[in-house]
């Protein structure tokens, strides 16, 4: 295969990865919580999109905002009712709690949706450019993923809510003194994290089959991307996602597809030790 093709495949994948990780990174960065539910949120978004398309015949792109809203509400409720109560506890507690919640959500999904791989088939054909062949649905997926990531970036930078989130991240107590309701901001942040996961899942379902068996894989990707790109910033997640996509693409070509994922994890472990701030290494959420 030609290098350009591998690169393009990597970038397409990487854009999807960035979209997967950006919500996880937001939650980790602002709440200091490792959200073990993230993988299940993505799959839930994918399933909801699939069912809306398959049974109701709706256009998946039009369904996406609705799916995102559902996930936002779910995330908001989980944070408001459960995670907020222990949000200042040590990692062991918050991680275990989100893992427990994930077990419940996962079980619900396997019972009601089963683990059958589901995919929205759009049949948009392929494009060829400079000898590089890419299915159009993947390009669409990449475009949507980048758009969503950019939207989050703009919201974080420009909106009142975004600024409030940044303020809470920087100094929880000072933010509280300035009249920001910290618990509500936490719930909104977690909701946005879930929203981004759901939207990413919806995009994913248009490109690849999704199944509950993939929750762990997606969660793993989010870990790796956050560490590669650096925690708590949209550009960090974007760089991390693209880097991981390209690395996996080349590693798969050079070492065989079964090693592609391993390379990502090993890289992550090395970076964790050598440069925990990641490649971008910014502090503060925008």
């Amino acid at each position: 295969m030609d290098i350009l093709q591998i690169l393009v495949n990597g970038i397409v994948l990487g854009a999807l990865y960035a979209c997967i990780a950006v919500g996880f990174s937001l939650v980790w960065g602002v709440l200091n919580v490792i959200n073990m539910l993230h993988g299940s949120f993505i799959i839930l978004g994918g399933y909801l999109t699939f069912f809306a398309w398959f049974y109701l015949g709706l256009n998946p792109i039009l369904v996406l905002p609705a799916v995102a809203l559902v996930l936002y509400l779910l995330g908001f409720a989980l944070q408001y009712l459960f995670i907020n109560k222990v949000v200042t506890a040590p990692v062991l507690t918050t991680l275990t709690l989100t893992f427990g919640l994930d077990m419940i959500l996962y079980n619900l999904m396997t019972v009601y949706f089963t683990a059958t791989p589901r995919r929205v088939t759009l049949d948009l054909g392929i494009v060829e450019f400079l000898g590089v062949v890419t299915p159009v649905d993947r390009l669409l997926g990449m475009g949507l993923a980048l758009l969503l990531t950019a939207l989050l970036y703009l919201v974080m930078r420009g909106s009142t809510i975004g600024r409030a989130i940044v303020a809470v991240r920087m100094d929880r107590q000072a933010a509280a003194l300035m009249g920001i309701r910290v618990n509500r901001i936490y719930a909104i942040t977690f909701g946005i994290g879930a929203l981004m996961a759901g939207a990413a899942g919806a995009v994913f379902a248009m490109v690849f089959p999704v199944t509950t068996n993939l929750t762990g894989v997606f969660l793993g990707k989010a870990f790796v991307i956050c560490v590669i790109g650096g925690l708590g910033s949209v550009p960090g997640a974007l760089v991390g996602g693209l880097a991981l996509g390209v690395i996996e693409s080349f590693a798969g070509f050079l070492l065989g597809p079964q090693h592609a994922i391993t390379v990502g994890f090993v890289l992550m472990l090395i970076l964790l030790v050598v440069r925990p701030t990641g490649l971008v290494g910014v502090k503060g959420y925008e």
Binding site: F82, K85, V86, T93, T96, L97, F99, G100, L101, D102, M103, I104, Y106, N107, L108, T110, V111
Partner: peptide, 17 residues
């Protein structure tokens, strides 16, 4: 059998709180 994972999750949540 079908719900054992959710119940374990429930135990974890209960434990934390």
């Amino acid at each position: 059998l079908e719900w054992n994972r959710a119940i374990l999750g429930g135990i974890i949540v209960f434990l934390i709180f």
